[in-house]
Design a protein around this nucleic acid. Sequence first.
DNA 1: GGATCTCTGATCCTATAGGATATTTGCGGG
DNA 2: CCCGCAAATATCCTATAGGATCAGAGATCC
Lengths: 218, 218
Amino acid sequence: MVLRIPTRRVLADDVYEQIRALIMSDGIAPAARVNIDEIARRLDVSPTPVREALARLESEELVSRLPLRGYRVTDLLNRKQVDDLYALRLLLEPPSAALAAGRMTAESVALIESELATCPAAPADDAYDDYKNLTAHDQRLHELILRIAGNDAVLQAFAKTHCHLHLFRLNFQQPFGVQTITEHRAIAEALVAGDEVGASAAMTAHLEIARSRLLDRM
Amino acid sequence: MVLRIPTRRVLADDVYEQIRALIMSDGIAPAARVNIDEIARRLDVSPTPVREALARLESEELVSRLPLRGYRVTDLLNRKQVDDLYALRLLLEPPSAALAAGRMTAESVALIESELATCPAAPADDAYDDYKNLTAHDQRLHELILRIAGNDAVLQAFAKTHCHLHLFRLNFQQPFGVQTITEHRAIAEALVAGDEVGASAAMTAHLEIARSRLLDRM
DNA sequence: GGATCTCTGATCCTATAGGATATTTGCGGG
DNA sequence: CCCGCAAATATCCTATAGGATCAGAGATCC
């Protein structure tokens, strides 16, 4: 039995992730122009897959396109944008958490528990990697809850905000860990108990704390 | 004073709209494979702008991409997807309508009134064009309300569902007009009056009626 | 003398043509 | 009827030419 790559990759996929990583790690500064030829030379490919990758990145608003003038990296989120983003999440996630609480199965419980278990109790050596792991965990948990709620349109709407990605770029090395974990556990407990009102309330509290914590630092 | 071309267009923009129009008008059937070379020949351009246009269309889920196997037109929405879509809209739009009601200005009132005025009282000769115009009007009005509410994240999340586009593809030549107009007017009156509760309720009623009207026909 | 305009050069986006590679389809053999 | 092989088709990528934009230097006008 040969183990196959689940989805075949083409060059544009790799280029896409490379550019994305470059932007995330500030390899290309915000507001900087993106030179297609330069990227192509740097990754040793032709401009064509670079163009396709940029077209995809544009849809998640990591770059913006100016006709006949090329692409540029989008600015970091400002206060209003962060505020709006959390207002949107407050519309989507608390009702979804309530829905999820009413639809919990043994399988769902196991998924929640195992996701919580992946969370590194002890921080990693590197603060940057630590922050990155925690962000990824946070994203997986929030999306898992939406998946349990069962509304694909809501899940996609949330995913397309790419909020974790944009919030990650703000990159505040704040004491993010302990409090978040505690809040996550509160949400999980309400979900496992099938407590719809409690799950909604815990999610609301979680988001509002995160929002004010973030805005205080801007 | 030099008059400038408002937004420069490149070939990929035209190709994008042409393909989109083809899909919308069933010039390419749902689930059909999209041949890049064929499109290129048909529009008399090279494959490169076609590839870029398809990458953009993928982000709004009019086509889906299978690596090394090309693009295919997405299927029409099924019952669950329609149901999910309206559930999402019910999360976003009624609260936004309430917000908008509390933020109305003289300018906002004028925008609402003029949009309502654009609605063709008498149906056009062609039923297809009539349906198209009404859909476009409906989309403009709903997005205008979100714009008045002032949360760009919500507006974008709504816009990215491309719900009017997908619902249009279902293309039911139903008696869509009169009732919708009446409901719109009810929403508008509550907005102009600054009635937050009323606006929210009118929006909720509008969406729920539209949903059941649509689901009844599937 | 300073400012504005124009011209020139370089850089980069846009589009085309062509070749390499992977998949699919059809056919023959077991 | 199933399996394997080969030709055909289409995707994917590269290389290159054409055209637009931008920056800078020089000239002209006030």
